[in-house]
Amino acid sequence: MFEARLASTLTLKRIVDALREILNQSTLDCSDTGIQMQAMDNSHVSLVSLCLRKEYFEKYKCNRNISLGLDLKSLTKVLKCANGDDAVTIKAADKADKVELSFESAGKERTADYELRLLNLDQEHLAIPETEYNCVVHMPATEFARICRDMATFSESVVIACSKEGIKFSASGEMGAANIKLSETTKGEVSIQVDEPVALSFAGRYLSTFTRATPLAEKVKIGLAPDVPLLVEYPIEDYGYIRYYLAPKVDD
C-alpha cells in the first residue's frame, strides 16, 4: 500500500510542469524513503531525475516498493481539476493498475477523488556517477531562465564558459551575437566555485525546457566539467530536487 499526502497541490502541479515538456510518460519509484524518478527525453540527450524524500510529505506510507507508470498529460488534466491550495493524497494498492488522487479544499468542505490508469512502462535507467564538477555555480533561478530565453533569440547553440572571473553565456547566429556574463556577488545571489575553467556548447532549447522548473526553487545550481553532461539542479525545499542532465554538443 502506498499513500502520500501533500498540504498543497500547487507544488505537485509545479513538479509535473517541470517534467512534462521533456517526458510524456514516466515511472515513479516509491519506496519507504520517498519517491524517485529518472527518465530520458525521446532523443536521449537529456535526462531528468526527481527525488522527493518522505519528509517532504505531510503523510507518507509505503509498505512495499511500488512503481507507478504515469501518463503525464493525463496527470496534468487531473491536476487541473484541483485548486493550488487543495491538499492532495496519492494512493495506490500493491500491484494496482490505477492510482487514486484525492483533493481536499483548504476548509475541508469539498473533496474530489480521481482515478488514473497506470501504465506498464519500459524505463531505460542510466547510472549517473557522483561527479566532481570543475565549476559549480549557484544563481537565482529567474536569472537563469531569463538568460536562456535571451540566448534563444540569437542561436540554437549556447556556449557556457565558466572561469574564476565569472560564468559567461554566449550565442551567435544570423542576427548577431549575445554575451551575458555574471560575476560572483558579495550578497551571495551568485556564487561561483571554479577548480578549472570549462567551456562547453549546449542546445539552447533543452536549457529553456529545464527552466520550466523555475517556480519550484529560488536558486538553481549549475555543474560543469569537461566532456561530462551539464547538471542543472533545482532544489525542492530541503527535501528533494529536480536534476536535469544535458549532453554537450559534439565538436564539429
Binding site: 536521449h44 540527450v45 535507467h125 542510466l126 561530462v228 553532461p229 549532453a247 559534439v250
Partner: peptide, 14 residues
C-alpha cells in the same frame, strides 16, 4: 540529433 552526444555514451549502465 543536433550533433548532440547521447547521454548513454556517458552514463551507460555497467
Amino acid at each position: 540529433e543536433d550533433l548532440q552526444q547521447e547521454l548513454s555514451n556517458y552514463y551507460a549502465m555497467p
